[in-house]
């Protein structure tokens, strides 16, 4: 019963952290936060959830592959966004104010601002969040895997002794 309550509390906290992370990432061009802090919040949720995940959470191998794919996709998207305008400088924000997706115009002065503005800034936020979730998520998974395998080894040694 106590374990169930703990899992419920961790689930609520982790969900709130994931929501906060996504909000920071995708509204980073309109309010404080960016892809780095947003990705960090999602990794916090992963850290909270991992000890209580058990076998119900998707297993370590699949999690590892998913995080590796996220890291690679984030890094490649980041590099691609740096070369959006090949005729100009690297990281030139060629999409800002050009219309279309993420190219909406922003009124000058204080305003809430449209979500699809800021050109490549919002997209770089997303790519960086993916990269951070993948990289630090793999770190966390590696550490948890190492600690659990060490515990398993000690238990085996204890049984053999």
């Amino acid at each position: 019963m106590r374990k169930e309550r703990q899992v419920l509390a961790i689930g609520v906290l982790a969900s709130a952290l994931i929501f906060l992370g996504l909000y920071q990432t995708f509204w980073g061009h309109l309010c404080p936060g960016d892809g780095l802090t947003g990705g960090g919040s999602v990794v916090f949720a992963l850290i909270l959830a991992l000890p209580f995940s058990g076998s119900s959470f998707f297993d370590r191998e699949n999690r590892w592959k998913l995080l590796a794919v996220a890291e690679t996709a984030g890094a490649l998207a980041f590099l691609a966004l740096a070369h959006v305008d090949l005729g100009s400088t690297l990281f030139y924000n060629a999409l800002a104010g050009q219309g279309g997706l993420f190219g909406q115009s922003l009124p000058e002065g204080g305003n809430v601002g449209p979500f699809f503005s800021s050109g490549t800034i919002a997209l770089i936020n997303g790519a960086l969040a993916l990269l951070v979730i993948g990289a630090f998520g793999r770190l966390v998974t590696a550490f948890f895997g190492a600690s659990s395998s060490e515990k398993h080894r000690r238990e085996e040694e204890g049984e053999n002794a």
Binding site: G28, H29, L30, N93, A96, L106, G113, S118, G119, I121
Partner: peptide, 11 residues
């Protein structure tokens, strides 16, 4: 106006 972002830190 140049970056079309309200958050100047992100800009």
């Amino acid at each position: 106006m140049e970056t079309q972002a309200n958050d100047l830190v992100a800009a």
